[in-house]
């Protein structure tokens, strides 16, 4: 799954000539890249936007990226200059000393897709259901970690066929695949995992020696970040899946309220800090929780919240914390 679209860009510097960037991209890896004149995949389109922004000419070296090492070799050996679609997290980049990495241009997360009617309405309801995953991906690992019954497929399109044919109750996929599927399949809903730890920031790789190119791409991304990049991503439906609604409106609101009003002291995961209690260890009833939040705990930093957060909202926060 790594190096999903290998966009190799090379600068061939020349006195007075326009800069040329060669992109390595898989000829058959939608929606990342595809050897197609008008819809070449979002990675190729973003690479074009970058090239436009820095006044360079872009050419594409079409090369399969399924095998990551082979794709990286294209970059090392100078057949292309930029490889797009690589995770820019330390765990990936730290053992690539010959490469440098640009700033991320989007975030890939994992989502669960289930039928809107009669399907699992929340992540918690997946126990006992059959969940389709793509073999050897982060989604596969996730389903395994959560102990879900999983059925393994090789390609994303096989997964979706299985979902539409009711072969599985739900699928876990990367958000890039979820978006385009949801756009053409109105009967299905995405459930957010609410687990930012699993999100992957995606950027591009260049050869370490191409300092100027890396800087040029980073500079271009500043200008494109709010304009062309989101436009391209949304055209391919990528943002659709990332904005998946939370399990219920009440708990979704409770999550935002908790994170804004409470997490600064009690932590994002509610396990507390030196000066605030671990709320996961709270043994009282929901009524106890309501009373303490309303009245505070005298002599501590826990001040009364009555008048600021309504009783129903406090109860929803209690339920949200329980579900963490």
């Amino acid at each position: 799954m790594l190096a999903v679209a290998t966009l190799t860009v090379a600068t061939v510097g020349g006195g007075g000539e326009a800069r040329r960037i060669r992109l390595c991209a898989d000829p058959s890896n939608p929606p990342f890249s595809i050897q197609h004149a008008t819809e070449p995949g979002f990675e190729v389109e973003i690479a074009r936007a970058i090239a436009d922004a820095i006044g360079a000419e872009l050419s594409v070296h079409w090369f399969p990226t399924a095998r990551e090492m082979a794709a990286l070799r294209q970059l090392h050996e100078g057949r292309c200059d930029v490889l797009m679609g690589v995770p820019v997290t330390a765990r990936y980049t730290d053992d690539k000393p010959r490469l440098s990495f640009t700033a991320p241009y989007y975030v890939m997360s994992q989502v669960v897709i289930a039928p809107t009617v009669g399907g699992a309405s929340s992540i918690e309801r997946l126990d006992g259901k059959l969940v389709g995953v793509q073999a050897m991906t982060l989604s596969d690992q996730l389903a395994w970690e959560r102990g879900w019954n999983r059925k393994v497929y090789l390609r994303p399109d096989e997964l979706f066929t299985a979902l539409v044919g009711s072969e599985v109750d739900a699928v876990v996929v990367e958000s890039v695949f979820a978006g385009p599927f949801l756009r053409k399949s109105p009967g299905f809903t995405a459930l957010s995992l609410g687990d930012p730890q699993r999100d992957l920031a995606i950027g591009a790789a260049v050869r370490k020696s191409d300092v100027e190119l890396k800087e040029a791409i980073d500079g271009a991304l500043v200008r494109l970040r709010d304009t062309r990049v989101p436009a391209i991503l949304s055209r391919y439906g990528i943002l659709l899946a990332q904005a998946a609604p939370p399990p219920s409106a009440e708990l979704g609101a409770a999550r935002s309220t908790y994170l804004t009003q409470c997490s600064q002291c009690h932590g994002v995961d509610a396990t507390g800090t030196a000066a605030a209690a671990n709320l996961k260890m709270f043994k009282g009833t929901e009524d106890d929780f309501l009373r303490i939040v309303r009245n505070g705990r005298p002599g501590t930093a826990m001040t009364p919240w009555r008048g600021l957060i309504g009783d129903d909202d406090i109860r929803n926060i209690a339920r949200y914390i329980k579900g963490l």
């Binding site: 939370p246 979704g252 999550r255 935002s256 994170l259 600064q264 008048g307 957060i309």
Partner: peptide, 21 residues
Amino acid sequence: YGYVSDLTYRRGQLFTGNTTE
């Protein structure tokens, strides 16, 4: 540093909408 997914202004409540570690 992250942003919550939705935030509404309510008088007297924190109007920040962030998570910070």
